[in-house]
Design a protein around this nucleic acid. Structure first.
Length: 557
RNA sequence: GUUCACGUAGCUCAGUAGGAUAGAGCGUUUCCCUCCGAAGGAAAAGGCCGCAAGUUCGAUUCUUGUCGUGAACACCA
């Protein structure tokens, strides 16, 4: 695919012997398709930006013949595309490349490792935590789409204090059913007990110590319970169509001298210290980390391991597995922690994974927390969305099967959640999130269904000349031509909202076109075929873009 | 207190490697049901881009300050 911005930029660089040219999309349609502001291009011969613009107009030549003409408006040189050339090129390219259109195979099939989600086993995913999964899945899909060989990792924190408490809770209260929610009920109960009774906390430390000392029976109890929890979590992620390739247990690192090796290495570097309570910590005073004390504590007083040291062991494992493309998705609350981990890795001679960070999800202005009751669980949210969808279908006397209902529901959740920039806080409002009008997943899928219907009743035959005269057609073609650039940009910005906005924009242009222009009823066969092929291309690009968001489409509603 | 992020229409949010008259969706008002059905389209109203200085031909965008919101900062993970 031709990169039009690059073509224009390169030509002007050559023409004016400069090395920096800004090519942008002008604010209004009557200003052309692409535009170059000429202020910065002034030189001794052409001291006035308007003169520069005129010089460009008079001397610009495009070897690809995709630029039809150049207009000058004040200090701007505006470029008009030859849509006959562009449209046939874009449509043909989409027809040839199909589900790979948009990819420039940036990954060259290289392996890429990404860790995301990794929720504590004792917690059910809520909308806040879920943002990690959605962004992680988006990035994974993006890397896969652009030709990386992606491996999705999930770290199971099966050895924390909370898990120990859960083990104690099940010992105390038993388990009515083997399902996830019964386990969570027990956890809530035992947490309450623990806040009243300090002996329970001490007991949890004892249990952890037993595990780390290799008590087989205790190890087995921990493992059995956490595995049940993870199974419960994965059931929810399956529903969201989010999957993982490799699961690693925190406990895997306490048995085989992993942790003592790390302590020894830090000792050898002179960075391991022990405080008056007997805890081991790393001295990070050589690094600029905004914590009150420049330390990272690795063990409790009884020398059992804290999470960071196990995370370091795990991360080293990941780095050894893939040093070149190694990513982790974490909330902004973990940024300083990540700096600490990176510093320790640096001391040990390892690079840190690349951080993809995102902000919180607030529920009506409050942080979601399981204990505070300010939480929307993914399961509840899914149920809510599905109920609303069912009602809408009933109103129209339509039916929908479970499979399609799940696809629509996921489209709704994913589009809403990914439509906000990563670093921005999401103010989650259940009513807004379950609304299906305007910028929503339903709007997109609905329009694809319309395209399906037209294409089903009007076969595309032959590959005769394409002819586009309508403004709406040109808008869609231009957007289609920009998709590969956008995907490339996503690799650096990691910004899902750029993609959701593109998808919405393209869909909206189609919807206007659909309203204004005859397709099935067009009597001119060339125009009709051109339009059908355009719709086919629009649908293909929408499907490709949605697949990066992790959204599937449905045939009909 | 220190560090980081964010303040754009009534609400939810795009945009900005500095550029021409700042864009969507929801809500409000008014029109329009022909290919999947209004879960849609057209139009109108709605903005000192938090505030103040600075950098420059030009700042919503960069810098500094300030106010507001959120987050992190030693035996949680």
């Amino acid at each position: 695919m031709l990169d039009i911005k690059k073509i224009i930029g390169d030509q002007i660089k050559e023409l004016l012997h400069c090395d920096q040219v800004t090519v942008e999309i002008p604010p209004k349609e009557n200003m052309g398709d692409y535009s170059v502001p000429c202020f910065e291009l002034r030189n001794e011969a052409l001291p006035n930006p308007n003169q520069v613009a005129n010089y460009i107009k008079d001397h610009f030549e495009d070897p690809h013949h995709i630029i039809q003409s150049v207009d000058v408006i004040g200090p701007y040189a505006n470029f008009n595309i030859d849509y006959d050339v562009l449209s046939s090129q874009v449509i043909q390219e989409i027809e040839e490349q199909k589900e790979t259109f948009g990819s420039r195979n940036q990954g060259h099939n290289e392996a890429l490792l990404i860790e995301h989600t990794s929720i504590n086993p004792n917690a059910e995913p809520h909308i806040g935590r879920c943002r990690n999964s959605l962004i992680g899945d988006f990035m994974s899909n993006l890397y896969h789409f652009t030709g990386f060989d992606v491996e999705r990792h999930y770290f199971i924190n099966d050895l924390g204090k909370k898990i120990a408490l859960l083990v104690i809770g099940i010992e105390k209260y038993g388990l009515k059913n083997d399902d996830f929610s019964s386990i969570l009920d027990v956890y809530v109960q035992i947490s309450k007990d623990a806040s009243q009774d300090p002996a329970l906390e001490q007991k949890s430390f004892d249990y952890l110590e037993q595990v780390e000392n290799g008590n087989e029976e205790m190890i087995e109890r921990f493992k059995k319970i956490t595995d049940m929890c993870v199974a419960g979590q994965m059931k929810i992620f399956d529903e969201l169509d989010i999957h993982f390739d490799i699961f690693t247990h925190e406990s895997d690192y306490v048995y085989n001298n992993y942790l003592t090796n790390i302590l020894d290495q830090l000792q050898a570097k002179g960075k391991l210290k022990e405080d008056e309570l007997g805890r081991y910590y790393v001295d990070l005073s050589d690094y600029k980390i905004p914590t009150k004390e420049p330390v990272l504590v690795l063990t409790r007083s009884n020398k059992t391991s804290l999470y960071p040291i196990k995370d370091i062991a795990y991360t080293i494992d990941k780095i050894n597995r893939n040093r070149k493309h190694n990513f982790i998705v974490l909330g902004e609350d973990q940024e300083v922690y990540m700096q600490q981990i990176s510093a320790v890795l640096d001391i040990l001679g390892y690079p840190a994974p690349e951080l993809i960070s995102y902000s919180y999800v607030l529920l009506e202005g409050e942080k979601m927390s399981t204990s505070g009751g300010t939480v929307v669980l993914v399961t509840d949210f899914i149920r809510e969305v599905k109920n609303t969808l069912k009602e809408e279908f009933q109103k129209r006397n339509l039916t929908i099967d479970d499979e399609n209902l799940t696809i629509l529901c996921n489209a709704c959740i994913k589009f809403t959640m990914l439509n906000v920039s990563k670093q921005k806080i999401v103010n989650f409002n259940l009513d807004n999130a379950t609304s299906f009008t305007g910028e929503s997943g339903i709007y997109i899928l609905y329009n694809i269904v319309r395209i399906n219907s037209i294409l089903k009743n009007n076969p595309i035959n032959g590959k005769e000349d394409l002819q586009y005269q309508e403004e709406q057609e040109k808008k869609m073609i231009k957007l289609l031509s920009q998709f590969p650039e956008l995907v490339d940009e996503l690799l650096t910005s990691c910004e899902p909202a750029h993609l959701t906005k593109y998808i919405f924009h393209l869909t909206q242009e189609f919807s206007r076109f659909y309203e204004q222009t005859n397709i099935s009823n067009e009597s001119n066969e060339v125009l009709k075929q051109s339009r059908l092929r355009l719709l086919w291309a629009v649908r293909q690009v929408l499907i490709n873009a949605l697949s990066i968001l992790g959204i599937k489409t449905i045939e009909k509603m």
